[in-house]
Write a protein that binds this DNA or RNA. Structure first.
Ligand SMILES: Cc1cn([C@H]2C[C@H](O)[C@@H](COP(=O)(O)OP(=O)(O)OP(=O)(O)O)O2)c(=O)[nH]c1=O
Ligand SMILES: [Mg+2]
Length: 575
DNA sequence: GGGGTTACGACGA
DNA sequence: TTCCATCGTCGTAACCCC
């Protein structure tokens, strides 16, 4: 069993029905065997197999009374869930067909009659339906794609085009539901309940959902020349399953009726449900759960083997329940931002440092464009064995300054290198999290902007001990870090005093922590210094203020969430 | 024992 | 001949500090 699961492809994807799976798997196995990637895959499969063994060992110890009690407990959960079943919404899920590939084919008709894929030589992001018949699919490296299909054309990604096309599609979505909700560039949910009600009001007769969705898909096609598929159901889970049923260029309705839903769910393999992936499928299969109805039948056993959260999810699936309020999705704000890159594996320090520098600069640019500041930094390394490690640290303040990120990255990296005896990386990545909220950010940007005229704040640099005037904390931090570099000289890489420099860097970074906390004295500052109260606020990341005062006139106040008004006012104040 | 932090893995597009 | 991505979210487990 060990290797077969790891390499066999998933024919669950649309467009891959009736293909010669055996042959394809043989080709893939041939191409993968013995590679580091393959070895790593086998290692993870071994871990999964161990988990499966443990699960089944535990399962065999369960007594029948215990199972009965567990089942009763689950029945209570089920009746709670059942009591809030809501069949009143018409939720639809729209998913573009072979999205990236379709865009590329539209823009270059020569590709239309050829098997093609989008991505790099290293990895394919998706393929057109023609290529899928050869077994070429998303998440496959280019060279295997070529093995499966020698005529395969590989087109590089053009994210700007996909974003622009997505915007056009969204324009159509908004004609039907203003609060539609995109889950990615190529798929989104709409709640047509209101639209259908309004239609009925106007026409005096019940509109046909299928007709409306057909019309919507036609509009999408007319505007973009791209086809999409739709699922219609009374919650997002069902709608999502539906959009895959008649792909490509099709739609599918799950009627808003409990019995119909249960019938639809009954023989559905659990893997069709979004959230159940390769591993969970294997785990569940191993304890005899294959279809969604098995989840219900074996609920007692499952509740003793899986976590509460998992069981809750399993029961929702088994009952055909799901989210009926798209606003629950819409509140989500970005929580992290990152960039990473794969390269020819190396242990060369200078090379690694150079890559890190580029990554940090790119991340910094990205954050500046999006007006984001982060307080938590994570370094990610994938070794040449494909083992991945991440190291996280809290910064003393929010920043998007690339040199601060680079310094932090180097400190984290040093620590790892000194621990491991061999360190050969094939990927490096940097991520910032604990991000500032949008409103806070906008405040910060505006305030930074108008403060450029006068450098009012100052602090003593812990390194050079000079009084440094600054506008923003990150600027001050920048100075401190420059000082650290100067102190250490540029010799750190050649002279083997690495451990020394490392320690001193760490110490200084630590010392700078209370330094910034000293902004607590803002509380006893004059009104002019209060300008910078936004900075300590972002340390805490708790919601504190509801009202902000204009930092220019110091009189005008506004609700904190109305950052646009604040900006407008400040603009006028500055004139 | 909570409650926070960190690392890792699963998942999806 | 070689060759397997990138970005974001969430759940869990292990650890620490009370
Ligand atoms: C699955 C997957 C998709 N993508 C990108 C490319 C896809 O065009 C886009 C949408 O993903 P999907 O909707 O999963 O795939 P698709 O639209 O290409 O094909 P389908 O007809 O089956 O819906 O996301 C990746 O970059 N990596 C991946 O692993
Ligand atoms: Mg799609």
């Amino acid at each position: 069993m060990a290797g077969c699961n790891t390499i066999s492809i998933n024919a669950t994807k649309a467009g891959m029905e009736g293909i010669d799976k055996e042959k394809i798997n043989k080709i893939i196995e041939e191409a993968s065997k013995g590679s580091k990637f393959y070895l790593h895959k086998e290692k993870s499969q071994a871990r999964i197999n161990k988990k499966i063994a443990e699960l089944n060992a535990k399962k065999s110890t369960l007594g029948s009374e215990e199972l009965d009690r567990a089942e009763k407990r689950m029945d209570k959960l089920i009746s709670t869930l059942e009591s809030v079943r809501d069949l009143s919404h018409a939720i639809i899920h729209i998913d573009m067909d072979a999205f990236y590939a379709a865009v590329e084919m539209r823009d270059n008709p020569e590709l239309k009659n050829r098997p093609m894929a989008v991505g790099g030589e290293g990895m394919l992001s998706t393929s057109n339906y023609h290529a899928r018949r050869f077994g070429v699919r998303a998440g496959m490296p280019g060279f295997i794609g070529r093995k499966l299909c020698p005529e395969l054309v590989i087109v590089p990604c053009n994210f700007d085009k996909y974003t622009a096309t997505s915007k056009v599609v969204q324009g159509i979505f908004s004609q039907y539901d203003k609060s539609y909700c995109m889950m990615s560039l190529d798929e989104g949910y709409l709640d047509l309940t209101n639209y259908l009600d309004n239609l009925e009001e106007a026409d005096g007769e019940k509109p046909d959902v299928e007709e409306v969705v057909n019309e919507l898909r036609r509009k999408v096609f007319e505007a973009t020349e791209l086809t999409c598929s739709a699922g219609i159901g009374c919650n997002t889970r069902l709608a999502k399953i539906g959009s895959d049923q008649n792909k490509p260029n099709g739609q599918f309705v799950i009627p808003a009726d409990k019995e119909e839903i249960l019938k639809f769910i009954h023989d559905l393999p659990i893997r069709k449900i979004s959230g159940i992936g390769n591993v969970t499928e294997q785990l569940l299969n191993s304890v005899g759960v294959v279809t969604c109805s098995d989840l219900f039948e074996k609920r007692g056993m499952l509740s003793l083997l899986f976590s509460e959260i998992s069981c809750h999810q399993f029961m929702e699936i088994a009952l055909g329940l799901g989210c009926t309020d798209l606003n629950e999705y819409n509140v989500s704000e970005r929580k992290s931002i990152s960039t990473e890159t794969t390269f020819k594996a190396t242990s060369n320090q200078e090379e690694i440092h150079k890559i890190l520098e580029e990554l940090c600069e790119e991340l910094s640019e990205d954050m500046k464009n999006k007006c984001l500041f982060g307080k938590q930094f994570t370094l990610k390394c994938k070794l040449d064995t494909f083992d991945t490690l991440t190291r996280q640290t809290n910064l003393a303040f929010c920043t998007n300054d690339s040199s601060i990120m680079l310094k932090t990255a180097k400190v984290l990296l040093e620590k790892e290198i000194s621990k491991l005896n061999s360190f050969c990386v094939r990927l490096l990545g940097v991520r910032m999290s604990e991000l500032l909220s949008d409103q806070e950010t906008k405040k910060q940007v505006t305030i930074d902007h108008f403060l450029t005229a006068k450098k009012e704040n100052s602090d003593v640099c812990p390194v050079c001990l000079k009084e440094i005037a600054y506008w923003t904390v990150s600027e001050f931090a920048h100075h401190v870090n420059k000082c650290i570099d100067t102190e250490n000289g540029e010799t750190s890489s050649e002279s083997k005093v690495n451990s020394d420099t490392k320690i001193s860097k760490e110490n200084i970074l630590k010392e700078s922590e209370p330094l910034y906390n000293r902004h607590d004295r803002d509380e006893i500052c004059t009104s002019k210094k209060r300008k910078l109260t936004t900075i300590p606020e972002m340390f805490k990341k708790k919601k504190v203020e509801k009202i902000v005062t204009c930092p220019v006139c110091n009189v005008w106040t506004v609700d904190e969430c109305k950052s646009y008004e604040l900006n407008q006012h400040i603009d006028s104040c500055l004139i």
